[in-house]
Simulated scan of single mutants.
Amino acid sequence: MVGRYIEEQLSSRPARVPTKVAAEYLGVSPRTLEDWRAKKMGPNYVRVGHKVRYEPSELEAFISKVSISSR
């Protein structure tokens, strides 16, 4: 029962993306994302072991946060 529930929840969520993909999406270099992480700025991320991953929703939230209105 619990296993099926977890599988359903995970399958309905967009996959977390690695730094390279997140950087391409944001239009910056992977090195820029690494620098931002070191400076505690940029989009929120998840570290699992040595791997860094970004939730697509966090990338969208970051874009919304740094967007400048022309009004």
Rank of each mutant, 00 (worst) to 15 (best):
I63S: 09
V46F: 08
S67A: 12
E8L: 15
E8P: 02
Y54M: 04
A23R: 07
P14M: 03
L26P: 01
F62E: 01
P30G: 06
K39C: 05
E58C: 05
G42T: 13
P56G: 00
T19S: 03
T32Q: 07
R16K: 09
P56Q: 01
E58I: 00
E34R: 14
Y45C: 10
P14L: 10
V21L: 12
F62I: 02
S29N: 05
S11M: 14
Y25A: 03
M41H: 11
R47T: 10
R31A: 10
N44Y: 12
K20M: 15
L10G: 05
G49Q: 04
T19W: 02
I63V: 15
P43V: 07
F62M: 06
N44G: 09
K65T: 13
S69V: 11
R47H: 05
R47N: 05
I6S: 03
D35Q: 00
P14V: 08
E8G: 02
W36C: 03
S70K: 14
V48W: 05
R16F: 11
P30I: 00
I6L: 08
A61L: 13
E58D: 14
I68D: 04
A38N: 01
G27F: 06
V2C: 07
S29K: 08
R47G: 00
V28T: 00
R13F: 12
S57C: 07
T19A: 06
E8H: 12
N44M: 11
S69C: 08
D35L: 01
A38F: 03
K65I: 11
S64H: 10
V2A: 09
R47Q: 15
E55M: 11
E34P: 06
A15K: 12
T32N: 05
L10N: 12
E60Q: 11
A23L: 01
S57N: 08
L33G: 02
V48E: 12
K20L: 15
K20V: 12
N44D: 14
N44L: 14
Y5P: 01
S11H: 14
S11Q: 15
A38R: 09
R71M: 14
G3P: 02
T19Q: 02
D35A: 01
R53K: 14
S69Q: 10
S69E: 13
A15W: 02
R13L: 15
S70I: 13
K39L: 06
F62G: 07
V48C: 08
L10C: 08
R47Y: 00
Q9S: 10
